[in-house]
């Protein structure tokens, strides 16, 4: 039931998006199927975050079609949009935690808004989420400015996962985590994918994550998705950028890869 199937969860067709008179994305097409972990890579400033924000409807698009669960997020009415938001979680590149709420309240925020649960259950599940992302209960009471960069990332991840969504959009989830924490993150994502059938759209520069968890990788260059495929296809590609990205000095091809 939950194996990666062919059910289309996110579909992007000929997307054009930009700011003012600069075009950032021009003709992006991309499909993500249910239960898949898609990694999105590309040079810094190429528009990965813009793509993510456009898919979730935070940025307007000039043209093109986007569907999430078969519906266009930008064209939904308020109620349908809320129902859709209940089904996805977003981790922003900078964390975007609510700065006046504690870590625990941040994680509980979506639960409070979307579910009606007892206080006790919310506390327990929120702590469970924080522990799942590798934090311990002592961070619960802290507000974001009292947390380290990596902790902020983790709390934000816990918040993105708060409602057990069907899709998570992750913008550089492992940036700022130590390698051990990053490996734990990979394991967690894999576990959630296997048990909950989670679909993941992940922007990342972490080659280990790409190796360990991504089913497919989409490469963004020249304002488009130039290729999508599994790691083996990336390693076999002879596009110069892809080659230097995946087989550059930092890629450690041939060395044992961290396993989830």
């Amino acid at each position: 039931m939950l194996a990666p199937g062919n059910e289309l969860v996110i579909g992007v067709r000929d997307l054009v998006s930009g700011f003012g008179d600069t075009t950032v994305l021009d003709g992006v097409s991309l499909d993500v199927t249910r239960g898949e972990i898609l990694g999105c890579v590309g040079a810094s400033g190429i528009g990965k975050s813009v793509l993510l924000r456009t898919i979730v409807g935070l940025l307007p698009r000039r043209s093109g079609r986007i569907t999430v669960f078969g519906e266009d997020p930008a064209r939904l009415g308020a109620r349908a949009r809320r129902a859709l938001e209940r089904r996805w979680g977003v981790l922003f590149q900078q964390g975007a935690l609510f700065s006046s709420l504690t870590a625990l309240q941040n994680v509980q925020f979506p639960m409070r808004e979307h579910l009606s649960l007892s206080r006790r259950l919310m506390d327990e599940v929120a702590v469970a989420k924080l522990e799942m992302v590798g934090l311990d209960a002592s961070v619960c009471d802290k507000i974001p400015s009292e947390l380290s960069g990596g902790m902020i990332k983790r709390v934000a991840l816990a918040r993105a996962l708060a409602l057990d969504p069907e899709i998570v959009f992750l913008d550089e989830p492992t940036a700022g985590l130590d390698p051990i924490g990053a490996a734990e993150f990979d394991t967690l994502i894999k576990t959630l994918q296997q048990t909950l059938g989670l679909t993941v759209f992940m922007v990342t520069h972490d080659l280990d994550s790409l190796h360990a968890v991504c089913d497919r990788i989409a490469v963004l260059a020249d304002r488009r998705v130039i290729t999508v495929g599994p790691m083996s296809a990336m390693l076999a590609s002879d596009h110069p950028w892809i080659r230097s990205y995946f087989r550059g000095v930092r890629s450690r091809v041939g060395e044992p890869v961290r396993v989830a």
Binding site: E131, M132, A137, D141, Q194, T195
Partner: peptide, 21 residues
């Protein structure tokens, strides 16, 4: 079997009480 991992994760959490002022 497919939920074993998730149940194991749940088994590990919430072992210490939440510190509360």
């Amino acid at each position: 079997e497919r939920w074993r991992a998730l149940v194991d994760v749940a088994h590990a959490v919430n072992r210490t009480p939440i510190p509360r002022r």
